[in-house]
């Protein structure tokens, strides 16, 4: 469990990035910090591994104040995945993945063997092990970044807009992989993004942030979608843009067992199963929210 207690951060230039932020991030779940650029979400994330120290307030991991832990030691125990992967360009893929174990003094042979296992875990072809990062595609680099973040088997994995720089199709693929990994590995994941669809797709808990890292709303995707706490949230999740509120098209003919749904703008946004002309109810799994995600990606692409 990660707990922020009344955390403030003012940068030397006077910018108040974080104003009195308090929140609990439960263990073994994915918490997504989502907000526009400059809302302080990355600053919050970097406070967890002491890349940024709070001006005041405290951050505790499992009850221990991280200010009392040496920064370098703390960082080696927390996985970190960033945008543009941040791989070391002068090291081969296998050495990149093994970076932290090697820093911690794990024998090279062991570290490399484990790195190869991790490549399989994240779905990388083992033939890429001896390549340099520049020889990989953006999606592959991101997978290497994830494998590196997992290399010390950390309890906590911090992900800073990890899929922001890849194209929508690869992003969807990586998001799916992240969900699979989270099911398999059971880490405490803190994920930062500006993409609300990504937040709803990946988050068990979503924290929507306004400027200064003020919490606009915190809850499960279902809670937030059903009850936006404010005008800001409603706007941010796109409720009032009509992107979320879908209605059955009155003009389009049902295609077999599917009924076409349209958004407020009148554009086809998806379909819903309606065997025998009746809407299927009661079987909607929580993951049905990915429908809205699909429509958005269609819009992006």
């Amino acid at each position: 469990m990660i707990e922020f207690r009344a955390v403030n951060k003012t940068f030397p230039d006077g910018t108040r990035a974080v104003e009195n932020f308090s929140a609990v991030i439960p263990s073994r779940t994915t918490t997504v910090l989502v907000g526009s650029s400059g809302c302080g979400k990355t600053t919050l994330l970097r406070m967890i591994n002491r890349m940024v120290d709070p001006t005041d307030g405290a951050i505790e991991i499992d009850g221990e104040n991280i200010a009392d832990v040496a920064a370098v030691k703390l960082r080696r125990s927390i996985g970190y995945v960033m945008q543009n992967s941040g791989l070391l360009p002068h090291r081969k893929v296998i050495d990149n993945i093994a970076t932290v174990p090697l820093l911690k003094g794990v024998p090279k042979a062991d570290a490399h063997r484990h790195a190869l296992e991790l490549m399989e875990t994240v779905g990388l072809d083992l033939s890429l092990a001896q390549r340099y990062p520049a020889q990989l595609s953006g999606g592959q680099q991101q997978r290497v970044g994830v494998a590196r973040g997992l290399a010390v088997n950390p309890n906590i994995l911090l992900m800073d807009e990890p899929f922001g720089a890849v194209d929508p199709i690869v992003r969807a693929d990586l998001q799916k992989e992240t969900l699979r990994l989270q099911r398999e590995l059971d880490k405490t994941v803190v994920f930062v993004t500006h993409d609300i669809d990504e937040a709803f797709l990946l988050g068990d808990q979503v924290i929507i942030l306004e400027k200064g890292a003020r919490i606009a709303q915190q809850g499960t995707p279902e809670e937030i979608l059903a009850n936006p706490a404010s005008e800001f949230v409603a706007d941010f999740i796109g409720a009032d843009r009509g992107k979320r509120r879908l209605t059955v098209s009155s003009t389009a003919q049902p295609q077999g067992d599917d009924v076409v749904l349209i958004d407020a703008g009148g554009y086809a946004a998806g379909v819903i199963s309606a065997p025998d002309g009746k809407l299927a109810t009661g079987h909607s799994s929580p993951k049905s929210r990915s429908i809205s995600n699909k429509t958005d990606q269609a819009g992006d692409a």
């Binding site: 080696r76 970190y80 960033m82 941040g86 070391l88 970076t99 911090l158």
Partner: peptide
């Protein structure tokens, strides 16, 4: 990006200089 990621990985200042 690379130096930041090296810091985040847990390189100390001196090892980051020499090795990155």
């Amino acid at each position: 990006d690379v130096t930041q990621s090296a810091t985040a990985m847990g390189f100390s200042d001196s090892s980051r200089f020499w090795r990155v």
